[in-house]
Write a protein that binds this DNA or RNA. Sequence first.
DNA 1: CCGCCCATTCTGGTATTACCAAATTTCAAA
DNA 2: TTTGAAATTTGGTAATACCAGAATGGGCGG
Lengths: 237, 237
Amino acid sequence: MKEKNLLAELAAYLFSASNGETGRTPSERELAEHFSVSRGQIREALAILEAMRIVERRAKSGIYLTTRQASVEAMALFAKAGVPLDPIQIYETVELRKIHEIKAAELACSRATEENYERLREILHESELRLDAGEGIAKEDRDFHLEIVRATKNSVFHKVCSVYYVMGEQRLPIYFQDPARGRKSHAEHLQIFDALLKRDGNLAQALMSAHLQGVEGYWKGLIQGHTEDAGKTLAPA
Amino acid sequence: MKEKNLLAELAAYLFSASNGETGRTPSERELAEHFSVSRGQIREALAILEAMRIVERRAKSGIYLTTRQASVEAMALFAKAGVPLDPIQIYETVELRKIHEIKAAELACSRATEENYERLREILHESELRLDAGEGIAKEDRDFHLEIVRATKNSVFHKVCSVYYVMGEQRLPIYFQDPARGRKSHAEHLQIFDALLKRDGNLAQALMSAHLQGVEGYWKGLIQGHTEDAGKTLAPA
DNA sequence: CCGCCCATTCTGGTATTACCAAATTTCAAA
DNA sequence: TTTGAAATTTGGTAATACCAGAATGGGCGG
């Protein structure tokens, strides 16, 4: 057991080892023994999981899963640990992305500064280099979309979006495995960038909407094929 | 010092006691002594703050503030501790609310179930009782808006919105101090509820937009009067 | 056989102590 | 002033102990 991922490993283990009826998990002492760490380490991890509202620690009673439904933070955590998320939640996240980013594209048209444009140019340039090298553009895709959100000059907006982009770190590479998808995505990014340059809010909005519609369709198709084996199986360490 | 808010108190203290240049904070041992708790307690709190990306713990070196810009989680935390937020961030949050909730109202029109309607009825009824008693409707207002988001049947959406509603727990009561504001807000809620019942997406969207426009205007006015003394002053314990 | 009560066990909450190794600081020698 | 080695500080981790309330199990009474 590599200690670095104690938090993620613990989260996954709690789900697999908890009482299905009550949601009660093994005690701190048992967990400490299972992971071969001190109780203090377990308590630190549990404190974080409690702050994320994944578990609830009841004094003198035990540790309980607060819900079978993972929190946003938990989803990001599980994604990092390689724990499959409920496909429904993936789809919901895409829907939320549409709500956020279509509006972000519109706002960015009136608020983007030269700094944003410069950063977007860099990202698009990097994308081309990677595509020419036959590589995926997972990171560049995320950077592009988040930079547009940043261009709204609403820092809260940007932080909220950053949260669920963390979740995609494991999935985006899959999406961009197909070079054709990377090319298509990049071409659409260029169009969106043009609209931003022209500060044409309606056009940017429409292009972003179409762009995300494609993403949504991809996941919808993928999810329908994996509805039964994905999800609930929270892989133990 | 009441132990219950160690996390919030600690967060505030770290900002006030950190080195302005390097962002280095007092050591764990010093913090433990300052708050009269064991090092273990401090470490649990720091683990949470680190997970929130508020601080960074460098082995054998020290604890450092990662940024002067608070994360969304940190904002919620500070709000609970009574630490004033940057007025700009309050305004940004309202803008994000508009993006979220106008769309939520539209989606809810096509997805709301009888359960949602029933819950909304309860909340509206409770609002009236409290208004008649001359009390504020901070909690009911939050419940009403969050229930509409819940009616979109997008759990990720709901969780994201819940995060920043926590921040309002300290401010909404101020907003509803004026009984007239409560009455006006409640009347608008009733209109929105009617639109939801009729499943008229466009109407619901328009009403929600107007409703939030009023909220935005309130904060804008309040902020402009407090721009200089609010913010940066992170009150110590 | 069922239900109630009490003693035992378990559990989280907290504090204390101790070591380690690396980072940091101190300070004297060059 | 510069340099470099020694002393100190710091986070990381483990082990132990005690508390008080919750959970549990068994025996007693009905």
